[in-house]
Design a protein around this nucleic acid. Structure first.
Lengths: 128, 128
DNA sequence: TCAACTCTTCTACGGTTCGTAGAACAATGA
DNA sequence: TCATTGTTCTACGAACCGTAGAAGAGTTGA
C-alpha cells in the first residue's frame, strides 16, 4: 500500500517542504499558488481546490500512515510522519526487499549511479 | 506507471523465473500449479484461470513495456524485457530519482542496510 | 478446400483507488 | 444564541486491475 496519487503526492511534497504542521486551509492555498505563477512544467498546476478535497486527501494519507494530525487544536494540524528522505529510503527498501536476489539487484543498482553518488556511498560505507 | 497488480506480478515472476519465452497457455498452467500443492502462505494461489485472462494481463504488461512478444510464431511467445534484477534496480532509481536531495536519501538508505549487503556494496564500489 | 481446432483481439463488468466536492454536523467567538 | 469556521459522511466519475465471453483469424488434418 505504498503508491500515491498525484494530488496525494503534491500534498506530501508541501508537508515535507515547509516541515511544520499545517492546516487544511493553508495547504489548499499553497496548492493553488505553488507552481502556478510560473507555468511550471511538471508541477501540479494551480487549481483552487475545495477544502474538503484537501481534507479527504489528508484523511487518506493518515490512513496510509504517512500523515498524522493533532486533533487537539481546533483547526487540526497535519504533518508528515517521517521526512521525505526517510520515506524515500523506506520505499527503496520495500522495492529491494521484494527481490529474491538482493545482492544482484544492488549490483545492478550501483552500476547505474552517478560518480558523485558513488563517492557519497563510499564515504557512508566507511571507506575501506 | 510502474506498479503492478497481483496477477501481473505473478506472471512477471514466472517469466523471470524460467527465463525462456513462454506461451499464454504455459503460463496459465504454471499459475495453476505454482504454489498450489503446498498451501503456500503468501503465494498467489492455484486457481485455474481462463487463457484469455492471462492474455489480457500479458497485453497490459506489454503496454507497460515489461514484456515483449514474438508475433511471428503462432502461439505467440512472451518474455520479460529485462531481468528481474534490472527491473528492480530501475525501480529503485525511479524512487530515488523523484527526490530533490538524492544524497540524503542514500544516506538514509545505507543506514538501514544489512551488514552483508553493506559488504557487497563496498566491494562493488570500492576496488580501492 | 473445408471443417475442426487453436489462438488472439475486442469488449465488458465488478471491485478498488483516487480526485473531487456537497451536505450535514460540531465547535468557537461575539 | 447566532454566525462563522472547520470536520465528518457520503458520493460520483475516472482509471486501473482481475476476470472472462464472443467473435475473428490462422492452422491443419482429411
Amino acid at each position: 500500500m505504498a503508491s500515491l496519487g498525484e494530488l496525494e503526492r503534491a500534498v506530501m511534497d508541501l508537508l515535507w517542504a515547509g516541515h511544520e504542521a499545517a492546516t487544511a486551509n493553508t495547504l489548499r492555498d499553497k496548492l493553488a499558488t505553488s507552481t502556478e505563477a510560473k507555468g511550471d512544467a511538471a508541477g501540479h498546476e494551480g487549481k483552487e481546490l475545495a477544502v474538503t478535497t484537501v481534507l479527504t486527501v489528508l484523511s487518506r494519507l493518515e490512513k496510509k500512515g504517512l500523515v498524522e494530525r493533532e486533533r487537539g487544536t481546533r483547526p487540526h494540524r497535519y504533518q508528515a510522519v517521517s521526512s521525505r528522505e526517510e520515506h524515500t529510503a523506506e520505499l527503496m527498501h520495500e522495492v529491494l526487499g521484494s527481490a529474491p536476489d538482493r545482492e544482484a539487484v544492488l549490483a545492478q543498482f550501483i552500476g547505474s549511479v552517478t560518480e558523485s553518488e558513488a563517492e557519497t556511498l563510499r564515504k557512508l560505507l566507511g571507506h575501506v
